[in-house]
């Protein structure tokens, strides 16, 4: 059987906020290592990958690998019934056709019990190749959310450019253009700071659909910082760490100049 108890139930609520608008349903693969889920949007532009390692849970048991085929709209509706400080337990039998969700209030005076029916999802798992990225940028997640929102007013494309010690976001459209630059800060240990790492100091600039970047920022509350990894002609990686034991990552195909 499978049983996973998450003291910080809000993590699951926040993760699903970052997933549900991009992927309507997905296979949540449960193994002794933890829970993982990946899915592409219907137009094959963005890949979403969630990993919740077993250490994230205060109790985790998975005797045999279990696949939970979940409709994300339904899953989200049920998770909205949980308070932010609820403890959430997921339970399923081996080869399940339903999953049990138990919410316990922080002071244990309320318990809510839900059953979600599972669906068979015909989906292939993709292998993600190791890539040497030309640039790795860490910025406060709220700042990235704000920049994506602000630049979306100018057009449907956001250009991300990394130069030595600086990351620049720009957009151009009929009403005008905008350019927002963030300089690398001195102390990179602070979550409020910006760090820019480059391989071989070669500037890198790529164009992306602002619509998708805005979808990704729905995961902002998962982490104080977001990491962007860029490589010419490769998908952008946007990563939100979930403490030390999980992550929500997005891969976004760049726009190609004609």
């Amino acid at each position: 059987m499978f049983e996973a108890r998450l003291l910080q139930g809000s993590i699951l609520k926040k993760a699903l906020e970052g997933i549900r608008e991009l992927i309507t349903s997905g296979n949540w693969e449960c193994s002794s290592a933890g829970i993982s889920m990946q899915g592409m949007d219907p137009s094959h532009v963005a890949l979403t990958v969630l990993m919740l390692q077993n250490d994230l849970f205060d109790q985790f048991r998975c005797d045999r690998n279990v696949t939970l085929g979940l409709n994300h709209a339904t899953f989200s509706k049920i998770l909205k019934c949980a308070a932010n400080d609820d403890i959430i337990t997921l339970k399923a039998e081996d080869q399940p056709d339903e999953c049990n969700l138990l919410f316990q209030s922080a002071n244990d005076d309320k318990t809510s019990d839900f059953i979600i029916k599972l669906t068979d999802i015909d989906q292939e798992t993709l292998g993600i190749p190791d890539t040497e990225y030309a640039a790795t940028v860490k910025v406060p997640s709220v700042e990235f959310q704000r920049i994506c929102r602000d630049l979306s007013q100018f057009g449907d494309t956001i250009i991300i450019s990394v130069k030595k010690g600086c990351v620049e976001f720009s957009g151009t459209g009929e009403i005008g253009s905008a350019k927002i630059a963030l300089k690398e800060s001195g102390n990179v240990d602070d979550d409020e700071k910006v760090s820019v790492e480059m391989d071989k100091d070669t500037p890198c600039s790529l164009s992306f659909a602002s619509r998708y970047l805005n979808y990704f920022t729905k995961a902002t509350s998962l982490s104080d910082t977001v990491t962007l990894q860029l490589c010419p002609e490769h998908p952008l990686v946007v990563s939100y760490d979930i403490g030390d034991n999980g992550s929500l990552k997005y891969y976004l195909a760049p726009k190609i100049e004609e």
Binding site: V45, L47, G127, T157, A253, K255
Partner: peptide
């Protein structure tokens, strides 16, 4: 203008 690329060529089936 720029056209939207797709991810298919970047990832392999497991």
């Amino acid at each position: 203008g720029a056209t939207q690329g797709r991810l298919d060529s970047f990832f392999t089936l497991k």
